[in-house]
């Protein structure tokens, strides 16, 4: 009988699977969030109406803060997840790949922190 366990089959981690699935799910979610964003910012309101007061009024509502926070998280992780696959495809040196990915995720965390900081701490200044 053939020894089937001799192959290169190691118990595989589901990371690549999860990453692939996340790209699909987040992509669909981003499509809906972006549609909402476009309808509000570009169809319901003319671009001339959008000023500081408009943004401040929207952000006064916690719903929009959460909306923007979720959209921020989705867009940053979706984009960087795509960039990760590009690095995996084209950067073959382990060292360079590790370095580039570290820089990439560090930037990602920075974007998330800065964005979340603004959304959580924003205080409208009345003119």
């Amino acid at each position: 009988m053939a020894n089937y366990t001799m192959s290169r089959a190691r118990p595989s981690s589901n990371f690549e699977l999860a990453s692939w699935l996340y790209m699909r799910v987040s992509g669909v979610l981003i499509a809906f969030f972006l549609l909402g964003h476009i309808v509000i910012m570009h169809i319901l309101h003319h671009v001339d109406e959008i000023d500081y007061a408009f943004a401040a009024e929207r952000l006064a509502n916690p719903f929009w803060r959460i909306y923007d926070l979720v959209l921020l998280g989705l867009v940053v992780t979706h984009g960087l997840s795509g960039a990760r696959t590009v690095l995996d495809d084209y950067v073959h040196s382990r060292g360079w790949r590790a370095l580039l990915k570290t820089i990439m995720w560090a930037l990602g965390v920075l974007f998330l922190v800065v964005g979340a900081f603004v959304l959580f701490t924003f205080q409208p200044v009345t003119a």
Binding site: R8, S12, E16
Partner: peptide, 8 residues
């Protein structure tokens, strides 16, 4: 077993 190999 094959799916496990392909999941890597």
């Amino acid at each position: 077993e094959r799916l496990d190999i392909l999941n890597a």
